[in-house]
Design a binder for these strands. Structure first.
Lengths: 247, 247
DNA sequence: CGCTTCTTTGACGAGCCTCAAACTGAGTGG
DNA sequence: CCACTCAGTTTGAGGCTCGTCAAAGAAGCG
């Protein structure tokens, strides 16, 4: 039970997508209908299922309706690096570029085909949506740079804090959490592979954050008790500030 | 003296740009002339000079003619993370997206304005160039993911080896090195800030590679004595394999 | 030749990893 | 309804990797 954050029976299941796009650009009524009308080719995926292979071409664009996924790469010896977490409202495989990382479901997942929307945008038929997509792309790039800083120059403590703040912000934008509480359906192994740490060390670092009175974690829900203090510690600056100003 | 690799008095100074673009798509004669005709607004920059600020909008597109630069971010306490090294033939500030990282000269640098080329591509006036730019963009993204793996999941030894292999490959593509030898005008501090390591540890890791008989470093020139063995150790896979197939 | 920047070395300590095992909680089947 | 299982979390012990501090060489440059 994830309580108010349950994602599998949302009354308006498409809403996270709408909220995300609207945060980037004002959409026309026609464009809104285009998004809200996305019901074709809705699919369910089990945790661990691969939605797109690394190097794949021509994958159809999809939005994530509920559940979490990630973009990742595996090394031959089993080491894994997760590049980004994909939340409800996020999309992948837009544009016709090859996939540079595998897309994998982390939880039970619901996705919907967005090839039509992708086409409309590239045909020039949806200028506001095009702007929203461009902004989303900039945001994604910015998040990847943030991630590189985390991996290269932050301590374990800072990395965990920084990631939690990023997730809080993104989920709030998608309408799935508030300033303090948000769903966090990740195992510590997933966090470890995201943050470039071992499982054990992630566990100990989370305990540090708890003992410091900064966070609470219970049954898939995270609570940030002192978001400002956390942001100061790890120099967190909301990446979306960039994207909102994209012409 | 960097010998045969000297970059400051090249007979055909634009050639690295041409070679890079040609490796991604076949250019028409008109497009080639467009590139070779780039002589306006040629500029020199001293090491450390900032060519674009983080968050800046509307920066004019430029190609690097000679010298090395990087994209980077600084933390308030002075820590630095370098996201990518920009080599002769590379460009930056293409498209009208905000700069997500500062662009800074690492050596004496020569650049040339490419706003005209950028415009031509976006007006649809240079379809092959457009394809080359798209491929370059994919390659850049792929390199950033490689970088994230390096930072998150490779050991110091693997990181250094992986970076050297990447640079060998990119410089060979630009016509500035061969399978074994290439110019490496980086201080160990720059490598450290690229690889998420301390200067001291980079130094000791380079010595390890030397003692293992894998590399030689002398006065700004790197020699890979066993590129295949190195590639195996750090699971290096040439990122450009992806980009060459971009539609 | 003297300065500065860069590289190298040593000593030491901290952060993070590995191995191993106990604990918890949510199914699942008898 | 209660073992049983399995995935995930937590704890402990020990050690390696990597960082910090400090200072001594080297190398480039005016």
């Amino acid at each position: 039970m994830t309580g108010r954050f349950s994602t599998h029976l949302g009354v308006r299941p498409i809403e996270p997508i709408v909220r995300r796009l609207r945060s980037a650009a004002n959409l026309s009524d026609v464009e809104l209908e285009l998004i809200r009308g996305l019901t074709e080719r809705r699919e369910r995926h089990a945790p661990g299922e691969q939605l797109a292979a690394e190097g794949a071409n021509g994958v159809r664009a999809r939005f994530i309706v509920s559940g979490w996924a990630c973009r990742q790469r595996l090394l031959p010896d089993g080491r894994r690096q997760i590049f980004s977490l994909l939340l409800p409202g996020d999309g992948f495989a837009f544009g016709d570029r090859p996939e540079l990382a595998a897309v994998v479901a982390l939880t039970a997942l619901e996705t919907v085909d967005a090839a039509g929307v992708d086409d409309a945008v590239h045909r020039g038929a949806a200028p506001n949506l095009a702007r929203a997509f461009a902004a989303a792309q900039v945001l994604e790039d910015a998040l990847l740079l943030d991630h590189a800083v985390r991996l290269g120059r932050l301590t374990a403590f800072e990395r965990v804090a920084h990631l939690l703040l990023e997730l809080q912000q993104r989920l709030e934008t998608a309408g799935l959490g508030d300033r303090q509480r948000f769903p966090l359906p990740l195992t510590q192994e997933i966090m470890a592979d995201t943050l470039g740490l071992s499982i054990v060390h992630v566990n100990r670092t989370l305990q540090q954050l708890r003992r410091a009175g900064m966070i609470e974690l219970r049954s898939g829900v995270a609570i940030l008790l002192q978001p400002e203090a956390m942001a100061k510690i790890c120099d967190y600056r909301p990446a979306s500030l960039v994207s909102n100003r994209a012409a």
